[in-house]
Amino acid sequence: MTNKTKGIMGNSSETIRDLDNSFIADNYRGGIVLNTGAINDQIGLAESACPTKALTSVKGDGKDLQVDHGKCIMCGYCSEIAPKLIKMMNKPDKPTQTKSRLVEQLVPQVQSSESYERIGIDLKNKIHKMFGRSLAIRQIDAGSCNGCEIEITALNNPIYDIERFGIHFVASPRHADVLLVTGPASRNMEIALKRAFEATPNPKIVIAVGACACSGGIFGDTYATTGGIDKIVPVDVYIPGCPPRPQSLISGLFLAIDKKIKNY
């Protein structure tokens, strides 16, 4: 048996220390990257293959392609049909502080390789500066498919163990500093979400988690959904992905605190 299994019932640590060493598979379908040496004849193909309209040609002449990472559900249809133009990278899309920054035009994405531990410790210091104590999160499902919930739950497992950075999940919005909202904001959850937002004490942070929360995702804007959390409550940080990886979630939290501190 390997070393890993020796400790399963004992005290050896399973927790990851470093983002670089944390697991990410080679064939993970993460965010999409556009090839800057644009191969124009494939733009139309890619655009029509996208089920969520995350890909749009900008000028209408079919020469420039624009990606809205908040809409991308990482299905990979575009890269299958236009492999020279679009590649799926095995890194997740980065969270942003504004919705417009989720959109990029034919610019290759730059990924930082900051370590998970480093981000976490910075985060802890910032939380302490702002709140003088640990950070409390209330998760609200506004109609998600449960995929995002599974990844948020994973933050609490011994591998990602977010609690060591002074972040914990609470049962009531009245005890919370952060609302972590998933789902395309279903019509039936609209009032509950508004009330939860009002019940959260200031300063409060709202984070939209996943493609659905950012833009409505595959469920879009229909009779039963409102097409994004920001139609109902103001959003501080958008975390793209379908669903976002635990690593993306923690860097999203980091961004949110950062934003609040600057405006505080």
Binding site: P51, I73, C75, Y77, D141, G143, S144, G183, P184, S186, R187, N188, M189, A192, I218, F219, G220, T222, Y223, A224, T225
Partner: peptide, 21 residues
């Protein structure tokens, strides 16, 4: 019913491959 997203209706407006997603 709180997470009702209108999936059955939505599928009627979709291509077969998209409804798979």
């Amino acid at each position: 019913g709180y997470t009702h997203k209108g999936i059955e209706k939505l599928a009627e407006s979709m291509k077969l491959e998209d409804a798979l997603l």
